[in-house]
Computed example of a mutant assay.
Amino acid sequence: MIVFGVAGWSGSGKTTLIEKLIPEFSARALRVSVIKHAHHGFDLDRPGKDSWRHREAGAARVLMLSGERWVLMNELRGEPEPGLDEQLRLLEPSDVVLVEGFKAAPVPKIEVWRAASGKEPLWPDNPNVVAVATADAIDCPHPVLPLDDAAAIVNFILEHPSRR
């Protein structure tokens, strides 16, 4: 399984880049999964729906399925957030897992950076950044990838020696 992160400041275009990478990997007959780490709470459920009511009643896990998809919701109820390795085990068998967030996780990362953000790049302080995807000129010791060229970025990921 290839595990590669996409890192950057909020609003830098991480999600947009991942949206472009997924079909590029899929066109190469690779099964792609994504882990998105949120720093804030989120809910896939709506109050009043059956699954919401089951969780509110105290269920630790609720599995919902249909003929089109399934989802497993797990309530932590005060327990620590599971680590990246545990989450990766849940995504087997995937060929490629793209990780958005988890800036400190020890997986190779492509940083999405835009000068217009006014923020400093992450790569000087993050040893896991192995390349920068940008449309801006940048003086960087890492490979600089064209932000609008998903095929080039996928090639970089597939050929990178530190891919997990």
Rank of each mutant, 00 (worst) to 15 (best):
M1V: 07
M1N: 01
G5L: 01
V6H: 05
A7E: 03
G8F: 13
S10T: 11
S12N: 02
G13S: 01
K14L: 06
K14T: 08
L17E: 05
I18C: 04
E19C: 14
E19V: 14
K20A: 13
K20M: 06
K20N: 02
I22H: 03
S26K: 14
S26N: 08
S26Q: 14
L30R: 15
L30W: 08
R31P: 05
R31T: 13
S33D: 10
V34A: 11
V34W: 05
I35F: 08
K36L: 06
K36S: 04
K36I: 09
K36H: 09
H37T: 01
H39C: 05
H40K: 07
G41S: 15
G41K: 14
G41C: 11
F42N: 02
F42M: 02
D43H: 02
L44N: 13
D45W: 10
D45T: 13
R46E: 07
R46I: 02
P47D: 09
P47K: 11
K49L: 02
S51Y: 10
S51N: 05
H54G: 03
H54Q: 12
R55G: 07
E56N: 03
A57N: 07
G58K: 13
A59P: 14
A60M: 14
A60I: 14
A60H: 15
A60P: 14
R61Y: 15
V62S: 10
L63F: 12
M64P: 00
L65E: 00
S66C: 02
G67Y: 00
G67I: 00
G67Q: 00
R69F: 02
R69L: 00
V71G: 09
V71K: 11
L72H: 12
M73F: 15
N74T: 15
L76V: 00
R77Y: 03
G78V: 10
G78D: 09
G78P: 12
E79P: 03
P80A: 13
P80R: 12
E81G: 01
G83F: 06
G83L: 09
D85W: 05
E86R: 14
R89M: 03
L90H: 14
L91S: 05
L91T: 07
P93G: 11
P93H: 08
P93F: 04
S94E: 09
V97N: 03
V97I: 15
L98N: 04
E100W: 06
G101I: 12
F102R: 04
F102M: 08
A104C: 02
P106M: 04
P106N: 06
V107A: 01
I110R: 11
I110T: 10
E111D: 06
E111N: 07
W113V: 12
A115E: 09
A116S: 13
A116P: 00
S117M: 14
S117T: 14
K119M: 06
K119W: 04
E120Y: 15
D125F: 11
N126D: 15
N126S: 12
N126F: 09
P127I: 08
P127H: 11
P127G: 07
V129N: 09
V130I: 10
A131F: 08
V132P: 06
A133R: 08
A133W: 08
A133K: 09
A135G: 15
A137Y: 03
I138S: 06
I138E: 05
H142E: 01
H142N: 02
P146W: 03
D148N: 12
A150M: 01
A150V: 03
A151P: 12
A152E: 00
F156P: 05
F156E: 04
I157P: 07
L158P: 07
S162Q: 13
S162V: 05
R164C: 05
